[in-house]
Amino acid sequence: MSIELKCHIGIGPDVEGEALVADDNFSARYDLDRIKGIFSRPQHKLAGQSYDGKILVLNTAKGGVASAWMLHEMKSRGIYPKAILFNTANTILAQGAALADMAMCDRFEAGDVTALINSGERVKVYPQKGLVIVKRE
């Protein structure tokens, strides 16, 4: 069974991967150990988990313009999320996705995206169509 989730037109290429979901926010500067590829801020709901190759599903982006460069830097070293889905992106993460050519979408019509997708599910992201497909067993 597949579920189609419509969202706003996003940025970046079509990608497929495994979802890593949390009702929490995101900053590459505040939350990540980018060398190890894990969430490092102890208070983050994904603390200790690897984001490498995942489709991250989070609530919103938070302060810190550094993320705009950091997504590009992460991708250049091959340790990066395949896509980030937000309820609401901020401008920084969108700009970072544009430079890094990383998939990013937000504003889902069906509501809170962190409640619509579960960790471990296979997800296809089509940013230019504003569409995300969740494969559910």
């Binding site: 313009v65 550094a66 705009a68 460069w69 950091m70 590009h72 830097e73 991708k75 070293r77």
Partner: peptide, 15 residues
Amino acid sequence: MMADPESVGEAGTAF
């Protein structure tokens, strides 16, 4: 422009 070397890295510097 914000662009410290930790954020920018080798890739951003080359860019």
